[in-house]
Design a protein around this nucleic acid. Sequence first.
DNA 1: CACCCGTGGCC
DNA 2: TGGCCAAGGGT
Length: 289
Amino acid sequence: MGAPVDAILAWFAREGRALPWRESGASPWGILVSEVMLQQTPVSRVLPLWTAWMERWPTPGALAGATQADAVRAWGRLGYPRRAQRLWECAVAIEERFSGRVPSDQATLRDLPGIGEYTAAAVVAFAFGRRAVVLDTNVRRVLARIVAGTAAPAPHLTGAERALAAEVVPLDSATAATWNVAAMELGALVCTSRAPRCDACPASKWCRWLAQGRPVAASRRVASPWAGSDRQVRGRILALLRAASSPINVAGSSSLQDVEPGQLDRCIEGLVSDGLIHVSSAERGTHEL
DNA sequence: CACCCGTGGCC
DNA sequence: TGGCCAAGGGT
């Protein structure tokens, strides 16, 4: 896949967005923070928060010196607040184990809280300019279409997919890093899930999916309903506690009266068990971050 | 491996 | 209008 790779690299040089974590001055920590914030979250919502976060906590040591509650509160409504909790834990681990230096080894990164296969590879490539196989949902979709000729990748990452992706990544370190971000960018801007802009795609000449007339994707698994879900209730509880300056009686809160007591108790217990909220020692029956 | 975990915007 | 989607990770 040499020609399409070159075409996508050239396209990225022209059309790639200038995002702050892509600037040459961005630190490995700043890049790691951006990768965690971008997990399942659009760039547009990450941008303002990342800037404020990095201004407040520019290094792992700075974040490690704050409290988990500070981190969860600053995370605001970015979503999946456990990412904030784990990012804080990650900062503490980097400070304690590596004297505040973000490790450059992929397996070492993978062992840090909140850092999985994708994020470890992304930090290796984008923060340290080393060759890595970065396989996010964008790269998977781009490869599925161009190479496999299917509208969407399989539900879960397969070994064959990893092998194919590894074959495509250029051997040279710097080019490999650029390829990874370019493929992600193509998936984000052109080869999108919903309405791909094949007329603007630098790889359309080689795309098997386009050549086959863009066959539709196999039906996806149905998502569980959102309204009334535990996730929604947990989100409401956390929103309440983020805004509070003192412990709150969550179970008796007027703003949660519409939630069935059994579900409310279950969600409170779950959040406590997750370590996202804590029983307050100040007053019986109250909680805080 | 299947399932759970937030949030907001878009067509 | 509501189902779908967005640079996944943990259990």
